[in-house]
């Protein structure tokens, strides 16, 4: 997975490791087990809860970075045009509104770019051996297309369909027109020369939700903005003290990055 490279390899990991060893990997009775000596976690949890997320760029791996600059926002796979179509389309699937940010502000298009560059994009862990046959829906994905190939063809098809119907590129359409194009893809009403429109659409829809709600380490859910909208506290060590409570327990969310540096 792509996250391997993104981990700062030096100091923080070791610190976190030591901190974590306080909680786990205790040897008891001569048998090494992955257990915790009771109570420790509850005692430490409050401190963890208080830990402020570090300023972006404050990690030792990127000294002297400007605080609001995100070096992760660059293309691993897309070209400029593909990126722009993705950004426009996913913003329609998950638009900004009074509840909070939409796909664009959350970095979803960067997330998708990074995913398509990864093992996911090349179907590295899927069974991709021939023969390929037309399948019933209940037999699942049966195409030779790799996800990244399907996605790029789908983006071209969005532009192609927009040109045919509106004489404009997808990104130049009004939001209502964009919705109409996306609806045509969703319901397989777009004829796009062999590109399975609804398969492409549902892949884009899944990727959008993943980009909104996955850990920010993958490039989406910027500043945990997706999580904050629905009071999801991200990655907490323990809910031991809260699990029985009535009513919503609100907490500052924590990301995996916080876990490394706190």
């Amino acid at each position: 997975m792509a996250n391997e490279e993104k981990r700062p390899p030096q100091q923080p990991q070791d610190d976190s490791r030591r901190r974590f060893l306080k909680y786990t990997g205790t040897a008891i009775g001569g048998v090494v087990v992955g257990g915790v000596v009771g109570g420790l976690i509850g005692a430490n949890r409050k401190e963890d809860g208080k830990t402020k997320p570090p300023a972006p760029g404050a990690s030792p791996a990127t000294p002297a970075a400007e605080s609001d600059r995100d070096y992760n926002q660059a293309f691993m796979f897309f070209n400029q045009n593909q990126f722009q179509i993705t950004e426009a389309a996913t913003e329609r699937l998950f638009p900004a509104d009074d509840l909070g940010p939409g796909a664009k502000e959350l970095g979803v298009a960067f997330f998708i770019d990074h995913q398509l560059a990864s093992a996911y994009g090349t179907n590295a862990r899927d069974y991709m051996m021939a023969p390929f046959y037309q399948a019933e829906a209940y037999q699942g994905y049966q195409m030779a297309f790799r996800r990244r190939e399907l996605f790029v063809l789908g983006l071209e098809a969005l532009d192609g369909y927009s040109n045919n119907h509106y004489k404009k590129k997808f990104v130049k359409l009004t939001p209502e027109e964009q919705d109409a194009v996306l609806t045509a893809f969703e319901s397989d009403k777009a004829d796009v020369k062999g590109v399975p429109a609804s398969t492409f659409f549902s892949m884009m829809r899944s990727l959008t939700l993943e980009g909104v709600y996955s850990d920010p380490l993958y490039g989406g859910n910027k500043n945990m903005g997706g999580w904050k909208m629905r009071n999801f506290p991200g990655n907490q060590m323990s809910y031991m003290d809260a699990i029985e409570k009535d009513g919503l327990v609100k907490m500052e969310p924590l990301s995996l990055h916080d876990h490394l540096t706190s």
């Binding site: 009775g29 257990g35 031991m240």
Partner: peptide
Amino acid sequence: QDYTNPDGVARAACQYCGY
């Protein structure tokens, strides 16, 4: 709760972490 089994393996209580 924390538990030590008949083989002497000790493990800690669940934290309801949701993952």
